[in-house]
Nucleic acid binder design. Structure first.
Length: 433
DNA sequence: TCTGGGGTCCTAGGACCC
DNA sequence: TCTGGGGTCCTAGGACCC
């Protein structure tokens, strides 16, 4: 069951429960928040178009292989590059991103490349270059930070920005109460363009949920401002699946009870939603459809887990292909150990993940006595996990994960590893046990 | 011509402790 | 011997997101 994103009370130091205060706070005294969501337009594909401007306007798909062609411009750029066509692809890759020209053929992120090739055989296929995408990601985020420093990272190509304390963002004119926010968002778009040569789309609303929706309303290169008053006209006609957190499963169940749009979800009987999705998820959905979301912009969180996984070029049998599987697993553990070292964490829990040829997934994990980032100990733990898993069916993927992360190398004495090992005194327990 | 890799959060049952 | 409840940790699975 999907999370019901918690509707937290955002950043209020003194949480005021109306039932506990003598005078309820005046609604006008609490100013609306001003939250932006910024989404880079077809990010990976647009980065590739910077590198290969001659592909501008053509259908281009990013995805698949790990090989990268030599940079045609590195040696003076005179020779013409011969790009791979989608029709020549054979393998198990998926579309990571597609240019808008390729999307016109029905190609979209997550689609198998073989299927995409059937739709757009002449599209150019480029392998992903994550180092370059990360470089431009840092550039655009740094550019935003010069104007609005309160930023929540949501991955390589999108962020939330709290505009609340940005000078001028709350300025209003008689015609436009959002004039200040509009001006600040325009400056942010301009700064991103100057720093990277790329366009982005921004939504500005009172909360993250609506801003995420709004940034998608006018893509590419859009700027959309919404208030709660705009809900009936701009948001309620949209499909329920546009709400961040309503995925394919929840959407299908909504369809079964006759709910297709956000407006229908907003009008739905709360008790029916709670009955269908459970108390927490049902109430969250109802609140979301009414545009209510108190989550704060979070500028930093500790990572919860770090993992490595790989899909094989062909399905492997756990026993027959043991000679192939063993070094793959060992290598994943070594990469994971290196990731932990680089990021400065050790983990107390080791887990493995297997995807069988029928796509069924099995996971196993175990807790270690001490946190570690040692490849050999990770490998040992993964081996123990594998002993408890069915191994009579071909595998498509194998993965290793460390969780229960602690900062450092895991060498701290056990007494520093957590509350479990600290003496606990119960002041109210006067009995001897 | 099936469907990558790296994450987060939630649920739920059982163990174990008080 | 049974009754009773609350809390935390561990583990497995699943939905969802970028």
């Amino acid at each position: 069951m999907r999370l019901a994103p918690r509707l937290q009370r955002g950043g209020c130091p003194a949480v005021t429960d109306p039932q506990l205060t003598s005078a309820p706070p005046a609604p006008q005294a609490v100013p609306d928040r001003l939250i932006a969501h910024l989404d880079m337009d077809a990010f990976y594909a647009s980065v590739e178009l910077l590198r290969y401007p001659e592909l501008q306007g053509q259908p281009v798909v990013i995805g698949g292989g790990r090989r990268r062609q030599p940079d045609p411009h590195a040696d003076g750029g005179e020779q013409t590059v011969h790009h791979a066509r989608l029709r020549d692809y054979a393998g198990r890759g998926v579309v990571t991103t597609a240019t808008y020209a390729a999307r016109a053929f029905g190609v979209h992120s997550g689609m198998g490349l073989m299927k995409a090739a059937a739709l757009a055989p002449d599209a150019i296929l480029l392998p992903a270059d994550f180092d370059e995408y990360r470089r431009l990601s840092r550039l655009f985020k740094a550019a935003v930070a010069t104007i609005a420093p309160v930023i929540e990272d949501r991955g390589i190509d999108e962020i939330y920005i709290d505009l609340g304390d940005v000078p001028g963002a709350r300025d209003r004119t008689s015609q436009d109460p959002m004039a200040g926010a509009r001006e600040v968002a325009s400056r942010i778009k301009q700064a991103v363009r100057e720093a990277t040569g790329l366009s982005c789309s921004i939504g500005v609303t009172p909360n993250k949920l609506l801003s995420k929706l709004a940034s998608d309303l006018d893509k590419p290169d859009g700027l959309t401002l919404l208030s709660h008053a705009d809900l009936p006209e701009r948001v309620w006609p949209l499909p329920a699946s546009r709400i961040n957190g309503i995925g394919p499963k929840a959407n299908a169940r909504l369809g079964e009870i006759g709910i297709h749009t956000i407006g229908e979800l907003a009008a739905a009987d709360l008790s029916v939603l709670v009955e269908t999705f459970g108390s927490s998820h049902g109430q969250w959905m109802h609140a979301a459809a009414h545009g209510r979301d108190e989550r704060p912009v979070v500028t930093w969180r500790e990572p919860k887990s770090i993992s490595r996984e790989t899909t094989f070029e062909r399905d492997l049998h756990p026993r027959e292909d043991r000679a192939l599987l063993t070094p793959i697993l060992t290598r994943l553990c070594e990469q994971l150990a290196a990731d932990l070292l680089r990021k400065g964490y050790a983990g107390r829990s080791v887990g493995v993940k297997l995807r069988y040829d029928d796509f069924h997934i099995v996971t196993r994990s175990l807790s270690l006595p001490h946190a570690t980032r040692d490849a050999a100990l990770i490998r040992q733990g993964a081996g123990r996990c594998l002993k408890t898993v069915p191994l009579d069916q071909r595998l498509r993927l194998i993965g290793v994960k460390m969780s229960s992360l602690v900062p450092g190398d895991g060498s701290a004495p056990p007494s520093d590893l957590g509350p479990r090992s600290l003496p606990l005194f119960d002041l109210f327990d006067l009995t001897e046990t």
